[in-house]
Design a protein around this nucleic acid. Structure first.
Lengths: 338, 338
DNA sequence: TTGTATGCGTTATCAA
DNA sequence: TTGATAACGCATACAA
């Protein structure tokens, strides 16, 4: 119950604390076999566990990083987090996770608290609205990596999807199969949420590049809870789209719900492609053609970049990493028949 | 860049460290308005951030807890974790998450490391195979809460589903609608994975209680990758089940995949009920009847119990909390027609 | 090969 | 009201 410290071990082993310390740090070189054993025994006997907090205070490194996400429940988050945790595990780091809930205030508080806790670095899925806070960290050369979203103007490492390419992939696939009236479903574009912007804009550009009509009515960009309504309105208007591009799993769910409620046949009446490879894509009917993010690779890269910064704080060149999406052809978009 | 400490603030404000400390801990009572302001200004000017590590060393509390899960990617894990994080947030705690990957060795290492890091408590989704380690913690009265699985013989708080009831819910629903040949799909029952045992056994007992035949062939209890094969064998045998109970989301996916591959009509040819309310349940065709776990409530309870233990380590009575599942009636099981 | 002394940044105890 | 001073548990020069 009462904590046993190095001093206790030292006393029992009849050596000084420093010797025990040496032992713990595996600097056996100048230690007699004899004392080594005595110390080992003493540790065993007392059930001694080093206090890492004390060590951290001295060494100015906690071997823990912080991860602040804007939505812990999101699939992408979970998967990237998993990869981060694994990478940390390999290097003996621990990760403190915090959910900002997409609230900039919370995010800011978390950043401060985690830094007060002396984390060695931070991986942030940013709300995007604390540019000044982020900026200050980069200026202080505090190890920092953004994931999923990046923040314009802040020179920091960032790991994200090549969103433009993802949108292009969808459009090209549709175009090559004869689809012309293609719509997109997304939450409202806002300047600080980069992937959303890039996907919607990428979609628009891809359309133009393929010589396809860009019709405003086919841009359903509204809050998730309003998507049903907008979809209903669009389909009631008569000017039906032949295909829909859902920019993420959340919007996909809305589209599927709508489709189901209105008995729309996929892919014959409406083709669908979405970003995020949802786990039920292959059991759905029809199977869903999706564009997957390499979540694991992204998480791993984020962790690696952070470790790099931690290792040599000084000459680190921030870089933005764009990960290529993977097109997974399944059954929700086919050759156009009608 | 160079860390600014309390000493720096003290010097600039022309007071002693102790006074600054008082200030930081909001013990203004015996402090002149004057000094208070001077300190505030100094802190502001230097951009001082207290070092929580140092404080922890002194106070023997880190305000951080550890959460060790056996599968970070599992939906249940994510949701419970979310609730835990939220509860911690409210109390100013941080959470370190670690993935044991269902490997007892890893789990053990994590427990040791997190304790070395002086976490104030541990919430564990246990592999179940480190009974001695768990036991030692309870003996030392180290704050500990199990989630999802519990460990027989270890007297600790545990938060889990009323699995027996969940199984009964499914069986009763089937029974009342005229189903008789009911099967279950699960990974192999192993004694240290309590929920699995309870669900399978609960299923068996519910069957008996309803006077329904318990036929061994209808117990598909094998490793996930082998489920397809077993299902194929069963359906080729001629003795078809009319309904299937999938004990979790993973097995449900296997059932759905099988059903799709063999063009089996749900619910007419085969009714399905599963534990875990998968997010696509309401967009699938037919919609999926599921039995939901109150994941959020479970996470919250786990955190609360842990805080309770942290607050008064001594007279804490370990307790097992059984959470009632919620039956969500949708379309994958209906009145039997044939 | 091992021990002594000092410091890491706080908080706590006790004087002043 | 404020200030010395001693912890907290460990690591590290330096001495022995």
């Amino acid at each position: 119950m009462k904590k046993v410290t190095m001093a206790d071990v030292a006393k029992l082993a009849n050596v000084s604390k420093s010797t025990v310390s040496q032992y713990l740090n595996k600097r056996y070189e100048y230690m007699s076999e004899e004392t080594r054993k005595r110390i080992a025994r003493a540790i065993e006997e007392l059930g001694y566990q080093p206090n890492i907090i004390a060590r951290s205070l001295k060494q100015k490194t906690t071997m823990t990083i912080g991860v602040i996400v804007f939505n812990l429940l999101h699939m992408l988050t979970t998967q990237v987090l998993h990869a981060i945790e694994e990478a940390c595990q390999e290097r003996g780091f621990h990760v403190i996770v915090s959910n900002s809930d997409d609230d900039p205030e919370k995010e800011k508080k978390y950043i401060e608290m985690l830094r007060a806790k002396q984390v060695d670095g931070l991986i942030i899925f940013p709300t995007g609205k604390n540019a000044d806070v982020y900026q200050k960290m980069t200026e202080e050369r505090f190890p920092l990596v953004f994931v999923d979203r990046m923040v314009p103007g802040v020179k920091a490492d960032a790991v994200l999807l090549d969103n433009q390419k993802a949108a292009a992939l969808a459009v090209e696939y549709f175009a090559e199969r004869g689809y012309e009236r293609i719509g997109v479903v997304a939450p409202p574009p806002v300047s600080h949420i980069i992937p959303r912007m890039e996907r919607i804009e990428g979609f628009r550009q891809a359309l133009a590049k393929k010589g396809l009509p860009v019709v405003d009515d086919y841009f359903i960009t509204t809050e998730i809870p309003r998507i049903q309504k907008e979809l209903t309105r669009l389909f009631a208007s008569g000017r039906l789209p032949e295909a829909l591009f859902a920019i993420n799993d959340l919007t996909l769910m809305e589209v599927l719900y709508f489709v189901k409620g209105n008995h729309i046949k996929i892919p014959d009446e409406l083709a669908i492609i979405s970003i995020d490879d949802v786990p039920f894509a292959h059991v759905y009917t029809p199977t869903l053609t999706t564009i997957a993010q390499p979540t694991f690779a992204m998480g791993k890269k984020a962790a690696e970049r952070l470790f790099l910064q931690i290792a040599k704080k000084s000459e680190h060149q921030p870089q933005v990493f764009r990960f290529s999406p993977t097109f997974i052809e399944r059954g929700s978009a086919k050759e156009k028949t009608s």
